[in-house]
Simulated scan of single mutants.
Amino acid sequence: MAKFELTDIHSLILSAAATRPDGNLLPPPEGLGELSEQLRASYSDLVRHKFAAEIETDASDQIWRSEEGKTYGLVLTDKGKAAAAEQTPAVAKTVKKIDTVFDLLRREQGATLTELVDATGWLPHTTRAALTRLRKKGHVIDKATRDSATCYSITAAA
């Protein structure tokens, strides 16, 4: 059986749950948005690989699924807690990089792709993907030209 690899989304979910006293995985961490089908798939992965377990809950913001009049949420298992502890430095680093991207995009002159790549250490295609994710989250990102290079800036927040 192939080893299960945690994605960045899995790591963010686990790390956020580890900071909650009750270990709940829901609601989703800030920035991941609503419980979309793609996000549901990530939660399903965590349950299937025993990083999380279902529990009954009445808290409306912690409902994962309902069946026969009962509602269920998700909590960290011991395996999930251990994985969160291992992932926390990497997740913190990723969040710090996103903050750096926001800071650069909020400058009056915005930021070029090269400036974003230099500041984050990401590859250009990863940086472009991050910009796309920001757009999908509702941020308005304008493009302009500065010294013959495309320059990006956030004009409205989500």
Score class of each variant (00 low, 15 high):
76 L>F: 09
124 P>D: 07
124 P>L: 15
27 P>G: 07
148 S>V: 10
148 S>R: 07
5 E>M: 11
59 A>E: 03
118 D>I: 15
52 A>P: 14
34 E>K: 11
156 A>D: 10
93 K>Y: 07
55 I>Q: 02
44 S>H: 06
6 L>N: 04
97 K>H: 08
105 L>D: 02
68 E>A: 13
58 D>F: 06
128 R>Y: 11
110 G>A: 04
57 T>H: 02
83 A>V: 04
158 A>Y: 05
91 V>K: 02
106 R>P: 04
31 G>P: 05
80 G>I: 04
49 H>E: 09
96 K>A: 14
82 A>Y: 02
11 S>A: 12
65 R>V: 03
52 A>D: 06
125 H>V: 04
29 P>T: 09
130 A>M: 05
14 L>I: 10
59 A>T: 00
50 K>N: 08
144 A>E: 08
65 R>G: 04
101 V>I: 12
6 L>F: 03
53 A>K: 04
96 K>G: 05
103 D>G: 15
114 T>V: 08
68 E>M: 10
154 I>R: 01
121 G>N: 11
26 L>W: 00
25 L>R: 03
139 H>I: 04
57 T>N: 02
118 D>Q: 14
89 P>V: 13
51 F>H: 08
53 A>E: 12
144 A>L: 00
67 E>T: 05
137 K>Q: 07
38 Q>L: 11
137 K>V: 11
113 L>V: 14
155 T>S: 11
158 A>P: 12
50 K>A: 13
97 K>P: 15
7 T>R: 02
47 V>T: 12
50 K>S: 14
33 G>K: 05
67 E>R: 15
85 A>C: 03
79 K>T: 12
91 V>F: 02
83 A>F: 02
1 M>V: 08
127 T>F: 02
17 A>W: 02
6 L>E: 03
12 L>M: 14
149 A>D: 10
30 E>I: 14
73 G>E: 00
143 K>M: 05
79 K>R: 10
153 S>M: 08
151 C>E: 11
47 V>R: 00
111 A>D: 07
140 V>W: 09
94 T>G: 08
55 I>N: 00
93 K>Q: 15
147 D>W: 02
128 R>W: 08
3 K>N: 11
39 L>N: 10
149 A>Q: 15
141 I>M: 08
130 A>N: 14
118 D>S: 09
55 I>R: 01
132 T>P: 11
8 D>R: 13
44 S>A: 13
2 A>L: 09
7 T>Q: 06
90 A>D: 10
92 A>L: 13
84 A>L: 05
91 V>Y: 07
74 L>N: 03
106 R>E: 13
86 E>I: 09
38 Q>V: 12
143 K>G: 02
14 L>M: 01
10 H>Q: 01
45 D>G: 04
